[in-house]
Design a protein around this nucleic acid. Structure first.
Lengths: 330, 330
DNA sequence: ACCGCATGAGAAAACCTTTTCTCACTTGAC
DNA sequence: GTCAAGTGAGAAAAGGTTTTCTCATGCGGT
């Protein structure tokens, strides 16, 4: 305690917090000594009094971290300046485990909770709607009157298809994931809006082998082949690009391939590296973090769903612009 | 506070903690009422007194989460039963950011810190050696007299090469990462011990394209070709498998390919799915978690480096055993 | 009938801060 | 010279819990 080192007891607090009345030289002296002995206030004691623990919880059911990590990075990035630390709780779609983690967080008096997942149209297996701390949803389905952040998949899909159109592609096919995913339907909708209904939409699963197989199907059909493939994610795009190469179809000269997600380890390792759509999950996390902080501080936040725009990452799989790898700053 | 609801003040504490003297029926009543009103003790107040926050910090410089996530899962898995929550702090090799996070964790009175990274032979950019809380290192270089957990890469490499030998391969080449990685040298050493020096070791980088290129180099050489490739990680193995397929070399009939890391998104998507070595990072995390807890509770722990054994994951890229995908339980 | 002891339960201190209240002293004004 | 106002700094309470201490009651033993 700085008090012992310096002179008084509660004066130290006032000195360090620049509150209360006191002589300038006293304040200086306390600050100096505190610095010298490396005094740091106990956040537990402080939190006990202020009802703010400067701690939030991040709840996720995305074991793999595919979506959670960028979101987490954004949250941490936004909140570290405010002295807020983040509890990461990975619940594996296990309601009991989820409840344990939520209880542990509440016991520790978190200032708020951010719920995140791997799918926009699914809920976490735990009810967060009547907690006495604010809850923000990020990349997962929220409850009535909650604040939810999500990517604008429609806009992202439009970005992709418009890019293909802009570089001169006319027969754009869409190979994507399971139709029961909301984001799949949204992306397919935007695709139809921009590209029309000339080419089919192939629904499948989120894997390279489906991308591979879909290309087989398309090229086995009689008639003109597509000159571009808009793929539902980077894994499908990679499978498709591989299948095209094996058929002797040149990417991007003969066919443009575009992905979705900008999952670096897939997109950047594909031959050629994938042009793709980035969902800006880090920015999403940043905004979710700032929002939960605002709520914790009692500032009003309008409830509702906030769609954040996606961004096109141009690499080499589409041709067009000859730049080789802009947007590689992550 | 349960006190108001029930009858007394500090008696409640004793009732709920099964300490102190009191009538059995009083104890029961307090417990029942506490349950009814959903009372949960404030961990901040409890921590203030007990000097235990039931909180630990996980510090990592592995932005991608490739290694950190399994380690984190293991830590959380081991500690959730003990009521311990984990602060995840991603520092991007930025010493200033690291210090901020460490200070924030210490302010919040963490019971201990686990440092983890992406490389066994590198330190985190922050000094944790003279903290007043216990520190455990996991998958990163520790300091003198610290407790460090790491994978036994030598044993893992031996596992791989012995498996290749066992299924009848004799000309085993080793394609791996940069020689300045300690784990690369260790794996190469074990490779030489088991396989002898008949085939060269090709050092390169951790990418698919290097695996691809290495195969080109090997197959361009005159003389007999290898009948097996032991690759330094799954990405290299995938690149190698792709290159072999493109050359018309059959995997696993003509050449066995084995990887390292068991990075599912790479290993399971390769054609054919990769037999590989799993570093058991989750188990590593579990042990690191239990160790930091033991230290926090004052139980003695022998300092030193603990090497944890790797495990062979058999898929289809080596042939041999015909099982298609055991070890797919993660 | 009295003393000692066991038993049940509340009072109080401690943990570390922050904040409000109080007090002593100085200074300026009348 | 007295009074009001202002200034510097310490005292005390509060926050929620655990732990130790104290006290009152009732019982058994002599």
């Amino acid at each position: 305690m700085a008090a012992a080192a310096a002179v008084s007891i509660s004066t130290a607090s006032k000195a360090l917090n620049d509150t209360g009345r006191m002589g300038a030289e006293t304040r200086e002296r306390v600050k100096r000594i505190a610095g010298e002995i490396g005094y740091r206030p106990n956040a537990l004691a402080r939190g006990l009094l202020s009802k703010r623990s400067f701690t939030i919880g991040l709840l996720t059911n995305d074991t793999y971290g595919r979506f959670t990590l960028p979101v987490m990075a954004g949250i941490s990035d936004a909140l570290v300046d405010h002295g807020v630390s983040v509890f990461l709780c990975a619940i594996e779609d296990d309601p009991a485990l989820a409840q344990i983690h939520v209880d542990a967080m509440l016991d520790k008096q978190v200032d708020g909770i951010i719920a995140t997942g791997k799918r926009l149209d699914r809920r976490l297996p735990v009810d967060l709607s009547n907690l006495h701390v604010p809850v923000v949803y990020a990349f997962t389905e929220g409850t009535q009157n909650s604040v939810t952040f999500r990517s604008d998949d429609e806009q992202g899909a439009r970005l992709a298809v418009e890019w293909l159109a802009k570089i001169g592609r006319r027969r754009i096919a869409h190979i994507t994931g399971p139709e029961d995913f909301f984001s799949v339907r949204e992306r397919a909708g935007a695709y139809h809006e921009v590209a029309g209904h000339r080419e089919p939409v192939l629904y499948g699963v989120w894997s390279e082998s489906w991308g591979h197989e879909a290309v087989e199907q398309l090229w086995k059909r009689p008639g003109e082949k597509p000159d571009a493939l808009f793929c539902g994610n980077d894994q499908i795009a990679r499978g498709a690009a591989d299948a095209l190469r094996e058929r002797g179809v040149k990417v991007p000269q003969d066919v443009s391939v575009i992905g979705f997600d900008n999952w670096e380890i897939v997109a950047a390792q594909t031959r050629p590296p994938l042009t793709t759509v980035d969902m800006e999950l880090k920015e999403l996390g940043r905004q979710a973090g700032l929002t939960v902080l605002a709520l914790a501080e009692g500032r009003p936040v309008e409830p509702g769903v906030r769609k954040l725009p996606c961004r096109l990452i141009v690499r080499q799989s589409c041709g067009g612009k000859t730049s080789n790898d802009q947007g590689n700053e992550t």
